[in-house]
Simulated scan of single mutants.
Amino acid sequence: MANSIKEIKAQLANNPSTELLAQLATDPRKGVQAALQQLQRQQEKLVVRQQALQNRLVMEHELWPNYPLIAGIDEVGRGPLAGPVITAAVILPHDFAVLDVNDSKQLSAKKRQELYLKICAVAIDISLGIADAQMIDRENIYHATELAMAQAVEHLYYQPQYLLVDAMHVPVALPQRRLIKGDARSASIAAASIVAKQVRDHLMTMYDRVYPGYDFKDNAGYGTQKHLAGLAALGSTPIHRQSFSPVKQYHH
Results as ranks from 00 to 15, higher is better:
109 A>D: 15
189 I>Y: 10
219 N>I: 08
177 R>Q: 03
141 I>S: 12
190 A>S: 03
49 R>C: 00
161 Q>F: 08
250 Y>S: 00
185 R>Q: 06
223 G>V: 01
209 R>L: 04
74 D>E: 07
14 N>T: 09
46 L>T: 05
11 Q>L: 00
29 R>G: 01
250 Y>M: 10
115 L>P: 13
245 S>R: 15
101 V>D: 13
205 T>Y: 08
185 R>V: 01
11 Q>P: 08
166 D>G: 02
194 I>D: 06
173 A>W: 07
193 S>M: 05
21 L>Y: 00
117 L>K: 13
5 I>L: 05
208 D>H: 05
6 K>C: 00
201 D>F: 09
48 V>W: 12
2 A>C: 03
64 W>H: 04
76 V>H: 02
180 I>T: 14
35 A>C: 08
191 A>P: 01
158 Y>D: 05
51 Q>S: 02
235 G>N: 02
250 Y>L: 01
249 Q>T: 10
34 A>M: 13
196 A>V: 03
32 V>F: 09
129 G>C: 14
16 P>Y: 07
105 K>T: 13
191 A>T: 06
203 L>A: 04
27 D>Y: 11
243 S>R: 12
133 A>N: 15
117 L>N: 12
84 P>D: 13
110 K>N: 15
97 A>E: 15
115 L>Q: 12
199 V>K: 06
54 Q>D: 04
129 G>Y: 15
114 E>D: 15
56 R>D: 03
53 L>H: 10
219 N>R: 07
8 I>V: 10
161 Q>M: 00
181 K>M: 07
94 H>K: 15
248 K>V: 11
135 M>R: 15
61 H>L: 06
153 V>N: 03
124 I>F: 14
216 F>N: 00
